[in-house]
């Protein structure tokens, strides 16, 4: 990707040659525009693709909904039955859903720097079964960890079509790590929920990364490597494992307002370090700090809409759904069946 950027910068023509358009290179003749029109013309034209960063002084408000459905168990890549888990633990999960509502705000102080803040609100449910066949559902709900991110364009620019961005972020422990449930019929009836049911990490986490973005008039493509590095221990004596994300995507603008897209997202996350003494690690696999890590590759397809004119100008809507094409868990753990997300943003 860097080679492509440098290749463009180094482009030169022989001197004293008359100008003729090079074959295959599209260009627009803007000489019909008046001086005032040129003066007010945007260099970076917003369209249905792009939108990862913002031009100077632009503000964006957004809302994103995410849903994940989990069912069936894996240990490594091997399917594990509930019966097998119940031979090892007195209870087993049978399914789980994670619902996330995330308001976000972005602001670009300069063309090169975009700042963003996101506050997810989670609703998690996990269905459980005991050896005697007794079914119950655990649930937790509330705000998760506040995310603050900065995206800095280190190489290239939108007008050159390719960019390399440095991502620097921080996650603040605003989400609860003390979620409990009361279930009639269990002994004890009130108990601390397992690690996947807690809403936050409880630690201040660093999120460094790199993003490559490419854009042409019709295509947008890119790749992002983002890590979540956790240090120390939270108030309950543990820290979640580090996370490493690598994804690539491509989108094609069929019109000014509609673009389908594809994304492949790979993720590795580690086991819990330490342990919360209030979480019973022998009751189910979800409470065992050594059965939390895994690796997963998701394949996602999306549709993206953009409003170029009118009162809702600069509004974006995207819907994306997909499923894992590879999953390897330090299990037994619940396997992800499918994912769905939808977003709405407005920039001004």
């Amino acid at each position: 990707m860097l080679l492509l950027t440098l290749g463009y910068s180094a482009e030169a023509q022989s001197p004293n040659s008359d100008m003729t358009p090079r074959s295959g290179e599209a260009t627009h003749d803007l000489t019909g525009l008046s001086l005032e029109e040129l003066y007010n013309l945007d260099v970076i034209q917003l369209n249905v693709i792009g939108g990862h960063t913002h031009p100077a002084h632009e503000i964006m408000f957004g809302y994103e909904f995410m849903f994940m459905d989990m069912g069936g168990h894996l240990s490594g890549t091997r399917d594990v039955s509930e019966a097998e888990i119940l031979r090892q633990f007195p209870s087993a999960s049978t399914g789980m859903t994670v619902e996330e509502h995330m308001p976000e705000i972005m602001y670009a102080p300069t063309n090169k720097l975009t700042l963003m803040a996101m506050l997810p609100i989670k609703h998690i449910e996990m269905d459980m079964v005991l050896r005697d066949g007794f079914h119950f559902t655990e649930h937790s709900q509330g705000i998760s960890d506040l995310q603050i991110m900065a995206l800095y364009t280190a190489l290239g620019s939108v007008s050159k079509g390719q960019r390399l961005l440095i991502d620097a972020g921080m996650s603040f422990p605003t989400g609860s790590i003390d979620e409990k449930n009361t279930i009639a019929g269990l002994d004890p009836s009130t108990f601390k929920l397992e690690y996947p049911m807690q809403l936050g990490s409880g630690t201040y986490d660093f999120r460094p990364g790199l993003t490559y973005l490419g854009e042409s008039k019709k295509w947008a493509w890119g790749a992002e490597a983002l890590t979540t590095l956790r240090f120390g221990r939270n108030d309950n004596g543990y820290r979640l494992g580090n996370e490493y994300n690598l994804m690539g995507w491509v989108g094609y603008a069929l019109t000014d307002w509609f673009a389908p897209s594809l994304r492949v997202n790979g993720r590795i996350w580690g086991n819990v370090h330490g342990a919360d003494p209030e979480i019973d690690s022998t009751f189910d696999a979800e409470g065992d700090p050594h059965r939390q890590g895994g690796r997963r590759v998701d394949f996602l397809m999306g549709v993206n809409f953009f409003v170029p004119e009118g009162i809702f100008k600069r509004t974006r809507v995207n819907i994306e759904g997909g499923f894992p094409i590879y999953e390897n868990l330090d299990g037994p753990q619940l396997s992800t069946r499918w994912l769905l997300s939808a977003g709405l943003t407005y920039s001004f």
């Binding site: 007008s159 079509g161 008039k217």
Partner: peptide, 27 residues
């Protein structure tokens, strides 16, 4: 995607910034 990189890169090289600057020179 493997078929379009030539088309995509050519389009990205034709920078809008310089289309505007060219029109300014004319004006």
């Amino acid at each position: 995607c493997f078929q379009v990189p030539h088309q995509a890169s050519a389009q990205s090289l034709s920078s809008r910034e310089y289309e505007i600057k060219a029109a300014y020179l004319y004006n």
